[in-house]
């Protein structure tokens, strides 16, 4: 077995990200690298937040997925910006409202899955229409401005280092610890491997899954809040790119789509890769259509190279 194939699946995102950085360095010189990297870190961090939530849901078993993430992200951002404005520009009120909105949305998602026995893909898609409509009623087409403190935080640098991505790395560390040693995390991975075995091992399967959907909703809420802060406000289409991309990031980050195995750290590599690739294709001035084709081809290529985690 060669050294390449012995690498853990989650490292491939990091390797691909570094490869793109090198390509860009060769093409446009070292000088532009700083700004490219800092943009990728900010947007990458937001992708990481969304994908980490999605990872928890996917890890709890085959078929579990949250398609309402973009709508929840948008709705939370609208709710948070509105609440912050109403409270005289309090960033903290905005944060609480964003997280609360996301977690309620997660509860509604799992409630529909459980009560109506809907497949997650249908239940979350149905709710996403509702969430999107509610967001529209909040602000219509208008962009809601973020509180000043939030906007300052998202672009704040300490000795040239961006603080927001560092905070998200802290969250990733917590997520990783939850998966390896947290009681809930272990149970979630058990449920993901075998629902029946988990039930007979005394795990309350429904409660575990509910928590994963609530976490996913909360993560989408946080992402919406940060994105609104960084991009200058909540907009109706702000969540659009965070559906398929987040799922691809989860998979590329070393999480099994079949459930039962998850990796929080690998999400960073995959998220950086995606954002750097977007920047690179922009820099090389590909047309939008061409960009998507190249992006799709690269995803397929990398997923094909990555050794598959052993499942059953």
């Amino acid at each position: 077995m060669s050294a390449l194939t012995r690498l853990a699946p989650w490292t491939y995102g990091f390797i691909a990200a570094v490869a793109i950085l090198i390509i860009m360095m060769v093409a446009s010189g070292v000088g532009s690298l700083g700004s490219v990297l800092s943009t990728a870190l900010i947007f990458g961090a937001i992708s990481v937040v969304v994908a980490t939530g999605q990872m928890f849901v996917i890890a709890t078993g085959p078929g579990n997925i949250d398609l309402s993430v973009p709508a929840v992200l948008t709705l939370s951002a609208y709710a948070a910006m509105t609440a912050a404005a109403a409270s005289g520009g309090s960033a903290l009120v905005g944060l609480v409202v964003a997280l609360g909105t996301g977690m309620i949305a997660g509860t509604l998602n799992y409630g529909a899955i459980l009560a109506l026995r809907l497949p997650p893909i249908i239940a979350t898609l149905a709710w996403s229409f509702v969430f999107q409509s509610v967001a529209f009623n909040f602000g219509g087409e208008a962009t809601l401005k973020p509180p000043a403190a939030l906007a300052a935080f998202t672009s704040f640098r300490l000795a040239g280092v961006q603080i927001m991505p560092i905070c998200i790395m802290g969250l990733t560390a917590v997520a990783a610890l939850t998966l390896t040693r947290g009681v809930w995390g272990r149970r979630a991975l058990a449920v993901g491997q075998s629902e029946a075995a988990a039930h007979f091992a005394g795990i309350r399967v429904k409660r575990v899954r509910l928590v994963s959907y609530v976490l996913c909703g909360g993560a989408a809420g946080l992402a919406g809040y940060l994105l609104a802060g960084f991009t200058g406000g909540a907009a109706l289409n702000m969540g659009d790119t965070y559906l398929m991309e987040a799922i691809a990031i989860v998979a590329l980050g070393g999480t099994s789509i079949a459930g039962g195995q998850a990796n929080a750290v690998g999400i960073w590599g995959a998220a950086l890769f995606f954002n750097l690739m977007g920047t690179m294709l922009n820099t090389f001035q590909f047309q939008a259509g061409m960009r998507f084709i190249i992006m799709g081809a690269l995803i397929i290529a990398i997923v094909a190279i990555v050794p598959k985690p052993k499942v059953r």
């Binding site: 491997q193 075995a197 007979f200 059953r312």
Partner: peptide, 9 residues
């Protein structure tokens, strides 16, 4: 296989 093991562990 279907009610006892966690196969990845």
């Amino acid at each position: 296989v279907s009610e006892g093991l966690f196969p990845l562990w």
